[in-house]
Amino acid sequence: MQSPSNVPAVLQSKYGSNVVVVDKGISGLNMPEAAIGAASATMPFTQAMASSPAHIIGINLAVHDANQAWESDYVVTYYLNQLIDVAQAAGKSVFLETPNPVNTPLYDRISQIAYIIRTTVQSRSLTLADHHLWIQTGLPNWQDSLE
């Protein structure tokens, strides 16, 4: 579930046919895997950014970081900043997205990780698509929408 102001729709409506929005998301990936190119990532993030023709990169990770007991807030912050640094070094404009809320104890840290993302956006003056907050405040019974 995405907010009505989901990023692809906003970009497409703002810039029209001059912008092509491509979702390169990899389901189930966590931040360390994305950084080094492990699991379902086909290459390290440095290589992916160097070879990408994209001008704007949205980073929407965290759901699968929320269930990794070994990932402290420090580790999440470290990898998030590493991904941002790599994309910016490759000349990309970066925006972050908070993860959608999840209604299962397996992902109890999702709100904390959304907070880390918000803090990172503020400290680095980035743009944020806050799906986590929008869903929780805009849909009073959001838990009922999950399967």
Rank of each mutant, 00 (worst) to 15 (best):
I116Y: 01
A35V: 15
I57N: 01
Q122R: 12
L80E: 03
P99M: 09
N67S: 13
K24I: 09
S13P: 03
W70C: 00
V19D: 04
I116W: 01
D85P: 03
I84W: 00
L11N: 03
A129R: 13
Q12W: 05
Q122C: 04
G138R: 04
V22K: 14
N103D: 07
V121S: 04
T98L: 08
F95L: 14
A89E: 13
A90N: 08
T127F: 05
V121P: 03
L96T: 01
A54V: 10
H131A: 08
D108F: 15
S5E: 12
D23I: 11
H55E: 12
E97V: 06
D144F: 14
L96M: 14
L11V: 13
Y78K: 04
L29Y: 14
P99C: 11
V21N: 05
P32G: 03
E33D: 12
E147L: 06
Y78W: 10
V102R: 06
Q122V: 02
K24P: 14
E33C: 03
S13F: 02
L106P: 07
A9T: 05
K92L: 06
V102N: 12
I26N: 13
T98F: 10
L126K: 03
S51K: 14
G28S: 11
H55T: 09
E97C: 12
K24Y: 12
I36L: 12
R124E: 00
A87Q: 01
N103F: 09
V22F: 13
Q136F: 04
N100C: 10
S111G: 10
N18K: 12
V86G: 04
P32W: 02
T46L: 10
W134R: 09
A48S: 13
I36R: 07
F45Y: 15
L96H: 02
T127R: 08
Y79A: 03
L80N: 02
S3N: 14
L96V: 02
A50L: 13
Y15G: 02
S123F: 00
I36H: 09
H64W: 10
E33I: 02
I117C: 06
S111H: 13
P101I: 08
S51F: 10
L83W: 01
S40N: 14
D65G: 01
I57Y: 01
V121E: 03
P99N: 08
T120S: 00
T46M: 13
D73E: 08
A66M: 04
N100L: 11
Y79W: 14
A129D: 14
T120M: 00
L83P: 03
D65R: 00
E147S: 14
R109H: 01
I113Q: 01
N18E: 11
R124Q: 02
